[in-house]
Design a protein around this nucleic acid. Structure first.
Lengths: 339, 339
DNA sequence: CTGTTAGCGCCTTCAA
DNA sequence: TTGAAGGCGCTAACAG
């Protein structure tokens, strides 16, 4: 429990004394400059300078009944998928004066209770949740700070920002179709994850619209990880009757899939075409460079951040959800199937 | 249970009233259970349960003169390199009751002043800095919370946790040598970065010890990014007299390097062998799978976190630095050179 | 435009 | 072992 070693830092009273005004005036000069006369404002600023005054956030927060920070709940901080999103989040929060508090919901085995305590604790003025496994509707206390759901979410009545997953899947399948593929497989995200489901359904629907079969043995279960892509490759290799193209619900899986295939001597894209999802940085440097559906992750973070801040400012608990568009990035992993 | 949740959150006074004790006793029962009688302790706990009391951190922090969180300063949150490190950090901080505050030092153009304000603001009880560009010695205020330097650091007299970079470089070069390579190139990290310099120097020294030439035109300047690896590939391609192997100061650069080479029709590893540094997740799935120097990033985060916490507990401003060992991960990107 | 005043919710001596 | 009481540093009425 030791304490922080801090110098006897100047308080607002010291500034007031030096500037020859009241503490209230100092406070105003600092947070509402418009409310004080130009001359006193300057006197205060000089006094601040002279005393080296820095605001004490704990005191301000107590008084204002807020915490000055936004909490991001991430399912697995180690997953690089989130780095861009967090960067986006940080980029809007920081200029607005909010701190970014990050918690990894996987670090302990009772995330539900943990979420609850985070929400109740008043640690944050707003929360952005990236973990779709987390909440059960009934867990949400009646009284809670603004919450925004980002990405992987189970159906839930809270403002959210997500990507148009079904559309992405549709674009991917259509692209494969346009390149002549009629036998198309899929590596799914974790079952039960809405986002994964959207991609899967988007794929199935498009296939049907194109009059193509949805073959059960061509749907490989994955969990977004590279390893699950590797595993899918093993299944693909074991097939007698193989699809000529595979649409992967994440770039990581596509990477693992292609890698394992190549290590087994398969020629990508000539033996199989592959389309990914996300456009993570690395896939452009793969051989073949991966054709994928771009998901603007930084933007997701920015929008989510903006949404919570707006909710906080407006003192409301809900706002319109947002759908962020996706686009096809054509590279080298798709060619016409061999005849 | 079954109590209605209050609209207004319960304060310590409410608990005291319900339990029939004083607020002091409640406070003690909560933070120093040993100091109160078993019976009253239980009464307090029941009252807490009944009222749905949750501690108000702002108030506690103000009173205790601490913030309850640790600040991580990251040069670029979008860089996936940090995700594992942050996960490690979070995994030790969270159980200890600390919040993890993250700031991206690249989001504005005056990081120096920003760092200063972070340090002075008392926002955090301790700071972990990952940004080697950041601090100038004289910027450090005389009085500041415990700080730990992690990774990329300019020479500086503060406790640090880093990896044995020179050793890593040595291992890499030796491995290439053992495979028959005598013409070895290097892609550096950003110049002036100690970590990059250590790797470069480790490489040069090893080369000399082995009696090999250090050829200036075989040292390509990079900045750790994949794009800089791509750029180095262009330079390699333009060379009349090419090295048969290249040691890259980061896996990202190795990835960009190999990718660009392959896109240009070069056969890796038969035309050039490549060794990386870091062992980021993806490189195992590349074709060829990348031989690299493993850097235990999660561990770095954990150690850094542990170090700040120890310093906070002990009320000291310094402690022994740590060097984390590295190891060679052999995969497929190194073969004997063509004769 | 500025000062006075009264807490925000908690912890922690000091007494009992 | 427990209670009483005084702030921690700041802000937001409410006067002036």
């Amino acid at each position: 429990m030791g304490g922080t070693v801090q110098a006897k830092t100047a308080k607002i009273q010291d500034v007031a004394r030096i500037a020859g005004v009241s503490t209230a005036t100092v406070s105003r000069a600092l947070s509402n400059p418009d409310l004080v006369a130009e001359s006193t404002r300057k006197a205060v600023m000089d006094a601040v300078e002279e005393s080296g005054y820095r605001i004490n956030h704990a005191a301000r927060n107590l008084r204002r009944q807020r915490s000055g920070s936004i909490l991001a709940l991430v399912p697995n901080l180690a997953n690089p998928f989130f780095s861009q999103i967090l960067a986006g989040l940080s980029s809007v929060l920081s200029p607005a004066g909010y701190g970014l508090l990050i918690a990894d919901t996987q670090t302990d085995n009772n995330p539900q209770e943990r979420l609850r305590s985070y929400i109740l604790n008043g640690l944050a003025d707003g929360i952005v949740i990236f973990d779709g496994h987390l909440p059960e509707k009934q867990m949400l206390p009646p009284q809670h700070p603004p919450i925004v759901l980002a990405c992987e979410w189970v159906d839930f009545d809270l403002p959210s920002v997500r990507v148009d997953n079904a559309k992405g899947a549709q674009i991917a399948i259509q692209h494969l179709y346009d390149n002549g593929h009629r036998r198309i497989g899929h590596i799914t995200g974790p079952l039960g994850n809405v986002l994964a489901d959207s991609r899967l359904n988007g794929m199935k629907n498009t296939l049907e619209q194109l009059g193509l079969a949805v073959r059960k043995e061509w749907i490989f279960n994955g969990d977004y990880s590279m390893d699950s892509g590797t595993f899918a490759a093993k299944q693909w290799l074991a097939l007698d009757d193989r699809p000529t193209a595979v649409f992967c619900a994440s770039d990581e899986m596509a990477t693992g899939f292609m890698g394992a295939l190549q290590h087994a001597g398969i020629d990508v894209p000539n033996d199989v075409s592959v389309v990914g999802f996300d456009n993570i940085e690395v896939v452009e440097h793969l051989t073949p460079a991966l054709t994928t559906i771009r998901q603007p992750r930084r933007l997701i973070g920015q929008h989510a951040g903006q949404m919570v801040m707006n909710m906080i400012d407006d003192g409301v608990m809900s706002c319109a959800s947002e759908i962020i568009p996706v686009e096809l990035i054509e590279r080298k992993s798709v060619v016409a199937p061999k005849t």
